[in-house]
């Protein structure tokens, strides 16, 4: 359904805008129809940048994004707008991503109005249907986001997304600002909706346990690169990349505080890797397949 090849996004910084931050540095993956791919990594590793690039909410520096056979990177603005309803995104902080001056009802109705083809009565009906689908009460429609809890606002965000009947949803840390018990409610709801509407999901999170629960396959990201990708059980039972292992059992991590500037040559994880050898700082490793669909970016594994 989605095919990403050598995706790159560089941000320019410095006074002369000549220094580049390689937020996403040559990332490739596919997501099958109906599948959930989990994307994990620490803050600043480029997960959100990937999510936004897929929708071209930010323009990628290079690479290919194919969605259902359509090349998104070279699409014109107008054509892009036609295709966007099929791909939607849910953001991290629901309190910040909803318009504080819009009633819940209007927030959910907005995408329906933009899509057109429905009259006022039909929109109203559709809104109450969506409200029910995401588990809100009818009395919530006349309230404002500040009158609802974080979990309820995230349900509103879900209703907005579902309003346009998407095929593919990018969920960017949808529960990281929620309490544990509310997180459970939202994650369960997302899984129900996924089944009901036959959705394909890219689930971005820094919480490995949450990703494990939600995904069919997991991609682990470190400093702009995917370092390991495979089906959930393989990643948890048979992780090969040293960084994946640190994420799974962080207790093994030494008190390492050095965060060196990235060098062009060598492995991205080299400065923190307990198994680093001389070759690791000289030659950039390549993705190798070590099992069925299980890829690792590490020269020491092979």
């Amino acid at each position: 359904m989605i095919e990403v090849e050598a995706l790159k996004k560089y941000f320019s910084t410095g006074i002369l805008r000549k220094r580049h931050i390689k937020a996403v540095n040559g990332v490739s993956f596919q997501i099958e129809q109906g599948e959930t791919l989990g994307l994990v990594g620490e803050s600043g590793c480029g997960k959100t940048t990937i999510g936004k690039s897929l929708l071209r909410l930010i323009e990628p520096t290079g690479g290919k994004i194919i969605f259902d056979g359509i090349d998104l990177v070279h699409l014109k603005k107008k054509e892009l707008r036609r295709i966007r309803p099929r791909m939607q995104m849910i953001f991290q902080d629901p309190d910040a991503s909803l318009n504080p001056r819009m009633k819940i009802e209007d927030s959910i109705a907005e995408p329906l109005k933009l899509r057109g083809g429905l009259n006022k009565v039909e929109i109203k009906e559709k809104v109450s249907e969506l409200i029910e689908t995401v588990g809100l009460n009818p009395e919530h429609v006349n309230r404002y986001p500040y009158q609802l809890s974080g979990g309820q606002n995230q349900r509103v965000a879900l209703a907005r997304v579902l309003a346009v009947n998407p095929d593919f949803i990018i969920a960017d840390e949808p529960t990281s600002s929620l309490d544990v018990s509310v997180q459970a409610q939202i994650l369960n709801l997302m899984q129900d909706l996924k089944r009901k509407f036959d959705l394909t999901l890219l689930f971005i999170s820094h919480d490995l346990e949450v990703v494990r629960h939600m995904s069919d396959r997991i991609a682990v990201m470190y400093r702009g690169k995917i370092v390991e990708i495979g089906i959930v059980n393989e990643i948890f039972d048979d992780a090969k990349h040293p960084y994946t292992n640190t994420l799974i059992s962080p207790a093994s991590l030494e008190d390492q505080l050095i965060y060196e500037d990235i060098k062009d040559a060598g492995c991205v994880f080299y400065p923190r890797c307990p198994f680093a050898a001389e070759i690791c700082c000289k030659k950039e490793p390549e993705m190798v397949e070590i099992g069925r669909g299980h890829w690792v970016l590490c020269d020491r594994v092979t």
């Binding site: 544990v180 369960n188 629960h213």
Partner: peptide
């Protein structure tokens, strides 16, 4: 309701 314990939710809100 922890993901590691099966994500069974408590209904309702505080």
């Amino acid at each position: 309701s922890l993901p590691s314990r099966g994500l069974k939710q408590i209904r309702g809100i505080s």
